[in-house]
Design a protein around this nucleic acid. Structure first.
Lengths: 115, 115
DNA sequence: CTAACATGCAACCTTTTGGTTGCACATTGG
DNA sequence: CCAATGTGCAACCAAAAGGTTGCATGTTAG
């Protein structure tokens, strides 16, 4: 009902794009994969396997945090990060919407040809 | 079988990231949405509704084409673009994998606490 | 207390992105 | 034929991304 015809959900497109943009980096995908294992990890731990510096990883974590893919809580002298799958669901729905719309359009066109 | 333990599918992470990066732009998401309606559209048509120049749109289309999200065929003096949902499926699977791994990890941790 | 550890912050640098303008070239409608 | 239409290509630009180094600050183990 809030979806105006023909606009194809222009509302929030900027936000959805920012989620994909956050996912659109090899290093950040690797960070998310590590965090998806369930353990909360400090910046130092997340940096460990990487060839990048701690500060580079810190910047990537900030990008992930800004779109809500990750949360950081302070524990003593370290900050532990954990995954938040919320935005992932949103990304999945966006991908599904485009894919489904395409399938339905193809089906319509096909039925026109066949009749 | 080809998935080595512990690497979390490092193979192709660069490629997956490039797909998300292609999706991570408001203008490109809008282009994909238009193309998902099923009609093949020329560059001029795709530019029509936008505030950007034709060349800017052309560059965005090139990005989409490089990751296979879009295909362009020549018809006379114009080039018609159409969507290819293949990479969308791949993106969806990547998102699902991270999400699922997180859920399973949480379930494991929870069962440890409850026992 | 104090050395080692985990971060935070800022300045700086290079490469990539996202856009524009200008001009050349191919196609097509009359 | 030839003006209008649709692209392609290259040069150029400003801003954003991705990284690094250096230094300051908070915490904790002994």
């Amino acid at each position: 009902m809030s979806r105006v015809r023909g606009e194809g959900s222009r509302r929030g497109r900027r936000h959805k794009a920012s989620i994909f943009a956050a996912l659109g980096d090899e290093t950040r995908l690797a960070l998310l994969t590590k965090l998806s294992e369930g353990r909360r990890l400090s910046i130092a731990r997340l940096t460990a396997g990487s060839s990048l510096t701690r500060q580079a990883i810190t910047k990537h974590l900030r990008v992930l945090r800004q779109v809500g893919l990750v949360r950081g809580v302070r524990r003593g002298r370290e900050r532990l990060f954990e995954l938040d799958p919320g935005p992932l669901e949103e990304a999945r729905r966006t991908v599904d919407r485009i894919s489904r719309q395409w399938d339905e359009a193809l089906a319509r066109l096909k039925s026109l040809v066949e009749d």
